[in-house]
Simulated assay, not measured.
Amino acid sequence: MTLFLRPNADPADQDRSRFQMMERAAELTDLASIEARDADAFLAAAEHERIKSAFYYFPSLYFDAWSRTHMLRWERHAGSILVYLIRQRRDSSGAKANAQMSLYFPPFPFDPAALRHALRRMRDFNSKRSSKIVIVQEAQVLRIAREGFVISLRCEEFIYDRAAVMALEGSGFRKLRQEMARALRQGMVETRPFTPADQPACLALAEAWRQRLVANRMKIGVAYRHMAACLTVADPFPPSLLKGLVVKVDGEARGFAFSGPITSTMGCNYLCITDLSLPGLALLLRYHLMARFPDLIHFNDAHDAGRPELRNLKQRFSPVEMHGVFSAQERWTSE
């Protein structure tokens, strides 16, 4: 079933085994795993909070919850969704230490009572060590700082005006127009919806991408695992939430991308991989994917992972906002 978990294993069985590896696992049994059926609840909460960040994109959360190295768990409190990250800590020698719990997002919709509840849970689990919020989007920073947290910038996300990108008018889109036209001159170019028959060719593209990053000593992060998930186990999600495209050149798959809505107005350019020997293809694929969501107003293309070439590519779409994403560390108190 999965490319990135133990082969032929039931994810629920692997989930239980990870629980067993952690000390004090009984303290987590009242928290729920993130399931595909939870999508509507998460989308409604994101809508209410006017979420912008790509980190909230529900399929990404769903696939990230399957990691070998950590778990995502959630609960409701005071009408808010609370998502927790539980990670196995290691000491200075590399040996496993106690598990550490962080709040993945501030409560959404935000509620001070829900935050206080989360802090109590984390302090109990972490033996009163100060608590951390992993992802704080820009609009939440002041609110979270007032609750006693020290704020640090994590990254900036590229947000595009979808209608402006579709129109491709003006000098700001001149390079994008030129590079997309160049991509179309490289052969018979066809962009169409992803189907299961495309899986082997797209997995090969993903592996080539991974090997290129390894060869260049660049961080892969969770991206490869998310690619494999989209290509192999995305069935629980309808195209309205997770839509895939494949671009073929002269009949051969040379790229794929997945996207979907964060809210009713904000989309997420979730993943996009193309053959780098064909310049402009990544731009063309992103453009066609945004075109498949006519009801959305903006698209979040996530951050640039510290890679200058990726930053340059995303700048081609003339972002209307560089959206700050932060982390937050609770100020230490002796209570």
Rank of each mutant, 00 (worst) to 15 (best):
Y84D: 03
I81Q: 09
V246M: 12
G260A: 08
A99F: 07
T333G: 12
R121E: 04
D250V: 09
L153T: 12
V134D: 13
L168K: 02
H323E: 07
Q329V: 10
E35P: 01
Y57W: 14
I151R: 06
A145V: 00
I151V: 07
R210W: 07
D161L: 10
L284N: 08
R225S: 06
K314V: 07
L82E: 02
S17V: 07
L242A: 10
I86V: 15
N98F: 11
A46E: 02
L3I: 12
F63V: 04
G280L: 10
M21P: 00
H288V: 02
S264Q: 13
N312S: 15
P200A: 11
A223I: 13
L115A: 09
F326D: 00
A282Y: 01
V136G: 04
L241Q: 14
R162K: 14
A114Y: 10
R286G: 03
R129G: 05
V222A: 15
R182E: 08
P279C: 06
A97F: 12
T195R: 15
V83Q: 05
L289Q: 11
H303D: 15
R116T: 08
M290S: 01
W332N: 14
R174N: 14
F58P: 03
A26P: 02
A41P: 04
K219I: 11
Q329Y: 11
V222F: 09
